[in-house]
Design a protein around this nucleic acid. Structure first.
Length: 276
DNA sequence: TACCAGGTAAAAA
DNA sequence: TTTTTACATGGT
């Protein structure tokens, strides 16, 4: 079956991040297709005119999740128009990366645990650790694994996670998040600042993690992870001739992308990675 | 071998 | 209040 996506859409660019940091058993790239478990069933996604081909055919709610996974909610047209009038460099990146729709992580728990594993360490290291976590506590399907459920993680001990390569501290963060009484799905109803407050009140979730939750789970247009080292390096390399920038400077720099900070952050990161 | 990598909380100053 | 430190792994 065909799942339509708004133009422009590039399957290749949108899935780039699933091929760049090592083996990911949750988002499996094989034979030019992306394999992922959605609502308990493994799907294979392949590029098709006007969107993606999904096999096997899926129900309506599954289709909605696939569309989020491929960044359907983003306003690429408005973003391109903003870039053309406000920022010539960004306009060039938008043309070079035409159709890049940042992938949204469909599940809030998966998004947060993924971020915790990525705190401070390289993404290659994070992916290797996450891989062991998934194959220990997740559910195996044909080619892909379902990310571990919150219930399954809540039943694990910090020592179990420590044995997978998480630090003692991070193992505690992950287990206590799973066991907390916060309703992660309810956060979608709150404005950005309230989401950040709710998340950073939890141990192990700082501003960086909350910003990426807004950006890559909720797809909020103005999420801007100013504390992100890779984003700071991208701003430095693309706009400032390599001069290092502080977190505060990066935060202020985001003003020029007003109402489109999320897309801008993703375009800068991908540009700095693949156009270098 | 060191050192850095898409942070965070807690100790020390 | 602000600054410093520990943390565990993977890649170079």
């Amino acid at each position: 079956m065909l799942v339509a996506l708004p133009e422009p859409f590039s399957f290749e660019l949108t899935t780039e991040r699933y091929r760049s940091f090592g083996r990911d058993p949750v988002n499996v790239w094989e034979d030019g297709r992306l394999h992922r478990v959605v609502a308990g069933r493994e799907l294979a996604l392949a590029p098709a005119p006007g969107g993606v081909r999904v096999e096997p055919p899926a129900r309506g709610d599954v289709e909605a999740e696939v569309r989020r996974l491929l960044g359907a909610p983003f306003d690429l047209v408005g973003f391109a128009a903003h870039a053309e009038t406000a920022d010539p460099l960004l306009a060039r990146l938008v043309r070079a990366l035409r159709g890049l729709r940042p992938s949204l992580t469909p599940d809030p728990f998966e998004a947060l645990v993924g971020s915790i594993t990525a705190q401070q360490v390289s993404l290659r290291a994070a992916v290797a650790i996450r891989c062991r976590l998934v194959e220990r506590l997740g559910e195996r399907h044909a080619r892909a694994w379902a990310f571990p459920t919150r219930e399954r993680v809540a039943a694990a001990s910090p020592d179990d996670l420590r044995a997978l390569g998480l630090s003692t501290r991070k193992a505690e963060y992950v287990v206590s998040l799973a066991r907390s009484d916060v309703d992660l799905h309810r956060l979608a109803a709150l404005p950005d600042d309230d989401v950040k407050r709710a998340l950073t009140a939890l141990r192990g979730l700082g501003e960086w993690t909350a910003d990426w939750f807004l950006a890559r789970h909720l797809g909020r247009p103005d999420a801007w992870p100013a504390g992100d080292l890779a984003l700071r390096k991208a701003v430095s390399a693309l706009y400032l001739d390599g001069r290092p920038v502080s977190v505060e400077e990066t935060r202020a720099f985001g003003a020029r992308f007003d109402r489109h900070r999320n897309l801008a952050a993703h375009y800068l990161l991908v540009a700095n990675r693949v156009l270098a």
